[in-house]
Simulated assay, not measured.
Amino acid sequence: MTEGEVAGWVEGELAAGRGGHIVTPNVDICRAVAGDAALRELVNGAEVVVADGMPLVWASRLLGTPVPERVTGADLIWSLSDRAARCGWPVYLLGGPPGVAAAAAAELASRHPGLRVCGVDAPPYGFDATARGRRRARRKVVEARPSLVFVGLGFPRQDLLIGELRRELPGAWFVGCGAAIGFAAGTVSRAPGWMRGAGLEWLFRLACEPGRLARRYLVDGVPFALRLLLSSAVTRLRLSGAAGRRSAL
């Protein structure tokens, strides 16, 4: 789906009383799930999975099964908040350092008049390592009764917590949005549009946070992306060759 189609899908599902989970895999998430069956099941169990990463878009084209566009959590936080303001859905923001979720809520509300943010929370790092910490965070969300929840804790922490929350709020929609709350607040800089379109957003983020992201991108991400593109091209050639042989018969 396109970004606009995702927003329309969520609107239709909420109107029908059905909740759901949106996962936005990028290269890093794909690398993680490739080697972990439990994480693969976590992603496959989501109602909506969209490609947050140009290498994934390129790989889909090489395979001959192209997705229409890149859809990121950083974009969905804006488009879904716009839809929430128009439809009257209460929104909740969970994640980020202290004060960031509140700043993001203020920015979203200023851009989308009528948006109702029913709660924000910035739990301390590592809160989800204990049952008590997870219960506290879940209780705050459940008491706020949101229709739409943005959870920015990074994969897979955000999506594991979403799995628990869905049992308590089955009619709500949850978006695992990574750094999107920081982007919305303006505390984390986002790459210019031309870099995002060219698949170079990772390079911009690497320049901003080299110490934290060097291994993720240079050691793990780039080699995995290259293998993904190569394997997609080889798979397409094999399928085309097999189809050609069947036609000849």
Rank of each mutant, 00 (worst) to 15 (best):
E5K: 00
V10K: 01
L14H: 04
A15G: 00
G17H: 07
G20F: 04
H21Q: 09
H21I: 06
P25I: 10
V27E: 07
C30D: 13
C30F: 08
A32K: 13
V33C: 09
G35S: 14
G45Q: 06
A51T: 06
A51Y: 06
D52Y: 10
D52I: 05
W58Q: 13
A59E: 05
L62V: 07
G64N: 13
V71K: 04
T72R: 01
A74T: 12
L76H: 02
L76N: 00
S79F: 01
S79W: 02
D82V: 02
C87P: 04
G88E: 09
G96D: 08
H112E: 00
P113D: 01
G114T: 05
L115W: 03
V117T: 01
G119H: 05
D121R: 09
P123E: 11
Y125C: 14
G126H: 14
F127R: 13
D128F: 09
R136V: 14
R136N: 14
R138C: 02
P146K: 09
S147N: 06
F150H: 08
F150V: 07
L153H: 12
F155L: 06
L161C: 03
I162C: 05
E164S: 13
L165R: 00
L169A: 01
P170N: 08
V175M: 06
A179L: 11
A179E: 12
A180K: 04
I181T: 01
G186I: 09
G186K: 15
S189Q: 15
S189N: 10
R190C: 03
R190L: 03
P192I: 15
G193L: 15
M195P: 14
R205Y: 02
L206C: 08
A207Y: 09
C208S: 11
P210L: 07
G211E: 05
L213P: 01
R215K: 15
Y217A: 05
V222T: 04
P223I: 09
F224E: 10
F224N: 08
V234H: 07
R238T: 11
L239Y: 07
R245V: 04
